[in-house]
Simulated assay, not measured.
Amino acid sequence: MAEASHGETRLPAEALRVGAVLAASGPVILKTSRISAAELNVGICWGTDSVAPFLMTTSQWWQLLSWGELLLPVVLTGLLLRASPRTTSLGIAAIGAVLVFRLFAISLPPGTHPLTDRSLPVDEPWPSIVCYTVAIVALLVAARSPLSPARKGAVLWAAAIVAAAWTVGWFSLPTGESTSFGWFAYTPPAELLWKQPGAWSCKADVDGVLIVLIALAAAAGGVMAGRTRRRVALGIGAFLLLATFEGFVAVLIVAGGEHLADATMMIRWHLLAAAALVIATTFRDRTSATDSEKPNPL
């Protein structure tokens, strides 16, 4: 009875910790409701078109903020999977640091459009404040409950996140006059991405949503039973496979099989690698379960 009660009290606490990762992912997920590089030029996902005339950055501070918001759910997930006694304190410190940095960034003068010299729009801080406050409260409420044991598949999850971050990392590199990450869209184009549902994975890739999705799956898998955990991993892996071959299938449908070479260029290999790594966690999980079931010779 004592063990059952302990498990019952731990489950809500672990759900709160996963909820903290979800809340910390809020600012990244909210990017999907705004115009991004994917709407401005769908070809950006495959490097087929120039996006320099459509993208502009405010400053390096905003680029650092974009990375901070993107990596925060990853950091929280890593702390949960590691199951350190300082998980709560370090998690709250990380959330607070990103929140303070956002408040600092919006206090700086906004950048200007390189052609019109008009000020670029700046996001309001309130959505981030709400999301990060919820995450901090969730961690504090769950602080007194023990963490789940550390997971051996954390390395595979981390590798999958690195693979999924290829597009965002590429945008971060200097490209001529400006960089393509931490940008703000200034003038909406005639055709928005939501009118082109076939390019949904492009936006998710550009905005970094696939990165936080993998982090959320890893955090949730750390508190689930073995079979449910494997199903979640397989589901995320299948989702990444769809994103990998979406452009490939679209070209084949529109242009036909004679354009197979062009269609192959639309495959996003980094997402294929991420899918393989996520699916590999299920095999690692089964191996660990088998080893734990072996009788102790002593």
Results as ranks from 00 to 15, higher is better:
79 L>H: 04
235 G>Q: 10
37 A>H: 08
4 A>Y: 14
227 R>L: 15
155 V>C: 04
291 D>I: 09
292 S>T: 06
177 E>I: 07
242 L>C: 12
149 P>I: 01
196 Q>E: 08
276 A>G: 06
87 T>G: 09
261 A>H: 00
257 G>T: 04
298 L>W: 14
106 I>D: 04
73 P>G: 09
118 R>P: 00
149 P>G: 07
267 I>G: 02
281 T>M: 05
220 A>N: 11
105 A>Q: 00
216 L>D: 13
11 L>Q: 12
241 L>R: 03
167 T>M: 15
147 L>E: 03
99 L>C: 07
260 L>K: 01
52 A>R: 13
27 P>F: 11
219 A>Y: 01
64 L>R: 13
99 L>A: 12
176 G>D: 11
198 G>C: 10
184 F>E: 09
162 V>M: 06
275 A>P: 04
5 S>K: 11
172 S>A: 05
289 A>D: 15
11 L>G: 13
11 L>N: 11
73 P>C: 06
254 V>L: 12
153 G>T: 06
239 F>D: 04
194 W>V: 15
64 L>Y: 12
199 A>V: 14
171 F>L: 02
262 D>T: 07
187 T>N: 02
246 E>D: 11
66 S>G: 03
143 A>T: 11
240 L>G: 03
110 P>F: 01
293 E>P: 05
89 S>D: 10
7 G>R: 11
98 V>A: 08
7 G>M: 15
93 A>E: 04
164 A>I: 05
233 A>H: 09
293 E>H: 04
128 S>G: 15
21 V>C: 14
157 W>I: 11
288 S>I: 13
214 I>W: 04
155 V>N: 00
8 E>M: 15
171 F>P: 01
199 A>G: 09
274 A>P: 09
246 E>H: 13
11 L>V: 14
36 S>Q: 13
31 K>C: 05
176 G>Q: 11
28 V>P: 04
122 V>A: 06
102 R>I: 02
162 V>C: 00
282 T>Y: 05
123 D>E: 13
44 I>P: 00
11 L>T: 15
2 A>V: 07
73 P>V: 06
276 A>D: 14
99 L>R: 08
42 V>N: 09
173 L>N: 11
188 P>Q: 02
239 F>A: 15
286 R>C: 08
137 V>R: 04
156 L>E: 01
25 S>T: 08
273 A>D: 03
41 N>K: 09
274 A>H: 08
220 A>I: 14
17 R>C: 15
196 Q>Y: 02
217 A>W: 10
213 L>S: 13
